[in-house]
Design a protein around this nucleic acid. Structure first.
Lengths: 204, 204
DNA sequence: AAAGAATATGACACAGTGTCAATAATGTAA
DNA sequence: TTACATTATTGACACTGTGTCATATTCTTT
């Protein structure tokens, strides 16, 4: 029966077709952008029939979501980094490091993130994915602030979640600016400046 | 000859048709969102022929840009507000007020801004318009920071434009959250919290 | 080798866009 | 008033793209 066996020639062919499609989709997305990319362009580049695309993927959005999976994984990893500073100095170092890592993602994954940003505005599915990443970050930052407040490291007269959102938004928008190549300063400098305001504003 | 005369019956009819189309477009955009709205829906609601839409407007994007003109005007007004604080307290009051006004726009113009946000992701024309508003704000905030730095009101160890961007980004993202009805706090409270961090972070 | 199962395919129906030659409405001048 | 010029409106048409499905192809099992 060979059920689920990768040695099954048919199954192998199917996997190869899927791979060809994904690779082609990546190239077309990067070249054309999400909006202008078409199924026809993708299947031609993959040298498969039109209908085949719909056998393997539900549509354009679906292609992108799968192509973005590992990038999204990286974001989650950054969001989950441990944060238990014993002093304001330690907090500063950790925040600075996290901001740096976050903004570096923009450089490292620029091309796919460019496509992703476009898709966020069009595809509800993609938009949902990004919302989840954002939510994760904000939740995490909120907890970090609450922790710092409990440990007399941060001001208690501000609402942790509201501040967390505001701080993440600054990071996020700089991410997109870097993705779009619209920034004129080194990432290191951006991170230093925004983290500096945030830390002096929030920490004691 | 009656050239350019508004009394000219033909011209009057043309103006009326244009108005009908604009009104219909506003309704369709609000009901369907930018992406799903179609020319056919608009012309049907306006009770005119298909081609007529293209006589008066270049396409979907063009409809929206014209519908957004007065909203964009309001943003520019906020951005241009005078900022010459004599003390940190005065600066705080001004910043708080500006943030409040900015975020109130989200509530006042929620429906059109919802459409606008969608369109930013799709239409390069609309995206350009928003970029200009953003640029104006950032430029203005940069100047305000530089002014505060010159007058010994603000820290001089940060880069005014980088900080201005970061601060505007927080405001902008909260604007979109409010537009999308995704916020759970009163605008007043949001403004108070984010401005408080910013001011303590930047001012002396 | 024949039946059966998994894959792949492209023609088709549908929805939307932008254009343009034809038509209708209005203005002008004799 | 009539004839003709000018301006505005119109919908059919040619395109481009999507998603589906009956059919064809390829592989497996008996």
């Amino acid at each position: 029966m060979n059920e689920n066996n990768i040695e099954d020639k048919r199954h192998l062919r199917s996997i190869k077709t899927r791979q060809k499609l994904l690779e082609a989709a990546r190239e077309v997305f990067i070249q054309e952008g999400f909006h202008k990319a078409t199924i026809t362009q993708i299947i031609k580049r993959a040298s498969v029939g039109y209908g085949t695309a719909y056998v393997h993927f539900e549509g354009k959005e679906n292609f992108l979501v799968i192509l973005m999976e590992n990038v999204m994984e990286k974001f989650y990893e950054i969001a989950e980094a441990e944060f238990l500073p014993a002093s304001v100095n330690e907090a500063e170092e950790m925040i600075h490091k996290q901001t740096n890592e976050f903004l570096k993602m923009a450089e490292d994954e620029r091309k796919m993130l460019q496509v992703f940003e476009q898709a966020i505005g069009i595809s509800p599915l993609v938009s949902e994915k990004w919302k989840n990443i954002r939510k994760k970050f904000i939740q995490r930052i909120s907890e970090d602030i609450a922790y710092a407040q409990r440990n007399e490291l941060a001001r208690k007269d501000v609402h942790n979640e509201l501040v967390a959102r505001g701080w993440f938004f600054t990071n996020e928008m700089y991410l997109w600016e870097i993705v779009r190549n619209e920034y004129e300063h080194p990432i290191e400098q951006i991170a230093k400046n925004i983290a500096s305001i945030y830390i002096k504003g929030l920490y004691l």
